[in-house]
Design a protein around this nucleic acid. Structure first.
Lengths: 243, 243
DNA sequence: CCTCGATTCCGTACGATGTACGAGAATAGG
DNA sequence: CCTATTCTCGTACATCGTACGGAATCGAGG
């Protein structure tokens, strides 16, 4: 664990949270580490879902008392932010770019999607809490900005592209995992299908009835993701006019 | 209150929840209505945010005992779904379409955005809970499908466009309101700005530094929304090939 | 009229959660 | 050793969603 960061570095504002692994050379030595606590929380969320991430269970996982966690994170929301940055570390931040910034952007979006599929709780956390970018997220942002360099977009536009791209991926994957969960439960999906069929049959929803009776070929989430992603990226204007 | 729907029509599956205002002609008559309870919950969320929507506060608002609410909705998650459909009723479902399906689609997305700005808690609810479409949402879906009729897209693709469009709007507005809230709190925004400046100054984030030092002209949320929306809609292929 | 079954109303209570408080334990400097 | 400082964590509390069960209110059948 490199720069790890023990307790004492926890504050409400981003400066105290992320920046200084300031060494307090006095007092009792920490028994745990922020990284270990965060990793335990991530493991819990991966295995049993976000609801399983309670202070008590995380504490039990690392062998600490419940209140000891508050030496490492001021509150639970901060713990969630730490979790986000922890898994963001799985995103690559080095390696060559192709020079085709659209292709690079698409590749990075696919990496983000893979990350979120690996940690299905991520989209929900990303979209619920207002978050400040931690070091790993910033490293990834740095790489996206580098890829965007040949695009000719100005600063504000590049930041916006990053935000929109991340938001799009999170939204799509969130939808994806929810639908996958619905399929896994046998009667839930069936009940919804019956309900939609009943609505379509009531005569007041002709368009819905038409769509349900002639759905066309089914689309895989993967294909849909790629298609909309390509639309979004290919539509990015390089001239400043916009719409 | 037209078809209102009293208690007894509450079940876990969509069929029992939305469809039948089956009249149970026996037993004590309901003192409240699902619509009134839902409206109270919406008013609470509008005024004080989603966290203010607790069963106790909603009950107090309508002058009911806490447990009485459970005769109208089996649990809180269902109440949230009712809230979503309640405000979805504010979306127009009639009136002429221009025939230009892209323009119609964009107009409807703008209406959705306006709705979400009016009810800032909506994006979070839309993206957290897995939801079944209630009557009002279905009416709006029906209208979107009708607008999409001249597009040549097949059934599955039309449904997908609806889901993606709603997801995009929710994601954008969610981000929009979060950022607006950050601006309202004086020190929170300043702290984040200082943090980003510090990161940019550490030398390991040259792209971020460049972007922050030459941001270009600032973009209004409105303009950004319109731009990305146009990209998304104009990029919709009418031939089946996709990418 | 009374009774009976059905339905709604709601006070009480339970388990779970986030976290404030403060006493105790460990460590470094004087 | 003493004292200041830091971390540890048992206890306690407010708040949440909601299970339970009895009282109240209704329509129907006698």
């Amino acid at each position: 664990m490199p720069q790890d960061g023990g307790p004492g570095t926890a504050g409400v504002d981003p400066e105290q949270l992320w920046l200084p692994p300031t060494e307090p050379r006095k007092g009792r030595r920490p028994s745990f580490s922020r990284a270990a606590i965060t990793a335990a929380a991530v493991a819990l969320a991966d295995a049993e879902g976000l609801d399983a991430v309670t202070m008590r269970r995380v504490a039990a996982q690392v062998g600490a008392g419940v209140m000891s966690l508050y030496s490492y994170a001021p509150d639970k929301e901060t713990l969630l932010e730490l979790m986000v940055d922890h898994v963001s570390g799985e995103l690559p931040t080095t390696g060559p770019l192709t020079g085709d910034w659209r292709a690079d952007l698409k590749a990075m979006a696919h990496l983000q999607r893979a990350l979120m599929l690996r940690h299905p709780w991520l989209p929900a956390v990303l979209m619920s809490t207002r978050r400040t970018l931690g070091p790993s997220a910033l490293a990834f942002l740095e790489r996206v900005l580098a890829a965007l360099r040949p695009s000719g977009l100005d600063g504000a536009a590049r930041l916006e592209v990053f935000a929109q791209l991340t938001g799009f991926v999170a939204g799509h994957v969130g939808y994806e995992v929810a639908q996958a969960a619905a399929v896994r439960s046998p009667d839930r999906g069936a009940a919804e299908a019956r309900y939609l069929a009943a609505v379509a049959a009531d005569g007041r929803h002709p368009e819905l009835a038409a769509v349900l009776s002639a759905p066309g070929r089914p689309l895989t989430p993967e294909a849909t993701f790629t298609r909309f992603l390509n639309r979004l990226v290919d539509g990015l204007d390089t001239d400043g006019r916009g719409y």
